[in-house]
């Protein structure tokens, strides 16, 4: 093999490898996803407030719905699977829907809502383990960047290990 060929082979291999790595990690250049977000809370006011924050991060590019409380007037606290179900349908996207819950029966009601969905839709829904406020902010931002359902959930769940206070050293 002529010596002159080696560097060019190596260079092209090296470049492709780097390129693929970086695309997976940082920028899904070729592929862009559209997902929906559902905010679930015991309190209608809390759900509405979190949705408002998330919408500001997403800038109208992501469908975000809310399912909070037991009644439309927001007086009764609690979670209801049917309200969550209609919130999912409101923002339904083929690339998936991510559900962010506050805690406790929000999670159980969200699970119930998923069970009521047709199998095909259920497969594209994901319950996030992320904390509600941080998770919604992060998820909305990354969903607006066109990231996939799994990728958005991964960065949202990373909020679990990101302290609020600065890491002054």
């Amino acid at each position: 093999m002529p010596d002159g060929k080696r560097p060019s082979n190596v260079r092209s291999r090296g470049w492709n490898e780097h390129r693929n790595d970086r695309q997976l990690l940082f920028c899904p250049v070729g592929e862009s996803f559209v997902i929906g977000l559902v905010i679930v809370s015991h309190s209608a006011k809390l759900a509405a407030g979190v949705r408002e924050l998330a919408a500001q991060m997403a800038g109208d590019q992501v469908g975000i719905s809310q399912a909070g409380g037991l009644s439309d007037d927001g007086e009764q606290l609690g979670t209801d699977a049917f309200r969550i179900l209609s919130a999912i349908e409101e923002v339904w996207c083929k690339d998936g829907v991510l559900l962010l819950m506050d805690l406790g029966s929000s999670v159980m009601s969200a699970e119930l809502a998923l069970e009521m969905l047709p199998e095909q839709q259920r497969q594209n829904c994901l319950l996030s383990n992320a904390p509600l406020v941080e998770g919604a902010i992060v998820a909305a931002l990354h969903a607006s960047l066109g990231e996939s359902l799994q990728a958005v959930n991964a960065v949202a769940e990373a909020a679990l290990s990101t302290p609020k206070l600065s890491n002054t050293g």
Binding site: M57, V138, A158, T162, S166, N167, T168, G169
Partner: peptide
């Protein structure tokens, strides 16, 4: 990194880490 707070460097592609800079 926030030099005024002597903080560690954070990932600028993470909104939560960016907020840590305070």
């Amino acid at each position: 990194a926030n030099l005024s707070r002597n903080s560690n460097a954070v990932d600028l592609k993470s909104i939560l880490q960016l907020m840590q800079l305070q």
